[in-house]
């Protein structure tokens, strides 16, 4: 019985945190290149809406996911243009994207409210893996494809970031753009790639919400998840694999806050995930110093050759 509770808690943690982890991994790449993107919430909601419209129109949730990735990427490209090419304030650009995304999606989505998605993603069990005791029912059963994809993608991106030349250059761009520039690497190109990729991932996170988790569109349906994804990226110390762990931990707190309501005061329980997030952020920020946790040195600073 105890094991059963644990299994279902982990399973629900994954189902809930999947969009957070998609967006957080994307944010990790953007920040690894030195660009902060506070527009995650806006990119997610636009991904949720455009993905929903595309899936509704085409009849395929996959086309919806592609469209969501596309719109997320396009907004990411815009953020890259503003923050890398124009060297404008990244924080303001990101905030503007979030505000704009929430407003625009509300406006464009008006006629799509009240039309549930009938051809949404379906839950399924992963063959073989779902038979593994404990892990199978916890992580490989009764989820949507976009939740299952998280683990392989996180591993792949971890490898890309830490074990390839591309990853090394990307990290160098975020740590010391001047060094990368001197070595003949284009800071602009890498930052554009990373920020656009971050947008793609946030868009897919949004698509998970409107095509799988609750297959319908309603205004402001991301409801702050984009901000939590941002916090997760930091809490995971900019590491894609840790983002999975951090996401699951946050998800477990979230689902437990409803599961334990008959035993603990619900007001406190519903605060728990957020208290956890704040504590994690504080711990990450001051605990052992910024450097030790791997915050990219040049995070938030536009790069211009010859300036310092």
């Amino acid at each position: 019985m105890e094991a059963e509770i644990l299994i279902s808690t982990i399973a629900r943690a994954l189902a809930f945190s999947a969009p957070l982890i998609w967006a957080a991994i994307g944010e990790i790449f953007a920040e690894r290149s030195g660009v902060v993107n506070l527009g995650v919430e806006g990119m997610m909601i636009l991904g949720a809406l455009i993905g929903f419209i595309a899936a509704q129109s085409s009849g395929s949730p996959w086309i919806g996911t592609l469209a969501a990735a596309g719109v997320g990427g396009a907004v990411g490209l815009f953020h890259a243009f503003v923050s890398v090419t124009l060297r404008a304030n990244q924080y303001i650009s990101g905030l503007a994207i979030t505000i704009f995304g929430l407003g625009l999606s509300g406006l464009l989505g008006r006629s799509w409210v009240g039309r549930p998605l009938l051809n949404s993603f379906e839950r399924f069990d992963v063959p073989l893996l779902s038979d593994i005791p404990f892990i199978g029912p916890a992580l490989f059963s009764d989820q949507y494809i976009l939740a299952y994809l998280i683990l392989p993608i996180a591993v792949l991106l971890w490898f890309l970031l830490y074990r390839t030349r591309f990853g090394l250059v990307l990290r160098t761009v975020g740590e010391s753009p001047a060094a990368a520039d001197t070595a003949g690497r284009s800071v602009t190109l890498f930052r554009y790639l990373a920020v656009t990729f971050g947008g793609v991932m946030a868009g897919i996170g949004g698509a998970y919400l409107s095509l799988a988790y609750r297959p319908s569109w309603s205004e402001e349906m991301t409801n702050g998840l984009g901000w939590i994804a941002l916090a997760l990226a930091i809490f995971a110390t900019w590491d894609p694999l840790r983002a999975v762990g951090a996401g699951l931990l946050f998800g477990a707190f979230f689902t437990l806050s409803f599961r334990l309501q008959d035993r603990f005061p619900p007001e406190l329980l519903t605060l728990l995930p957020y208290v956890f997030t704040i504590l994690a952020l504080v711990f990450t920020a001051v605990g052992r110093g910024r450097r030790a946790f791997g915050s990219p040195e040049a995070l938030g600073q536009p790069y211009a050759r010859g300036e310092r």
């Binding site: 189902a15 919400l209 402001e220 998840l225 979230f254 409803f258 309501q261 519903t270």
Partner: peptide
């Protein structure tokens, strides 16, 4: 209890719980 009028993720997890 959700302690919110609109929070789809919370409502989702409360229902699943």
């Amino acid at each position: 209890w959700l302690y919110s009028w609109f929070d789809p993720a919370a409502s989702n997890e409360a229902t699943e719980a």
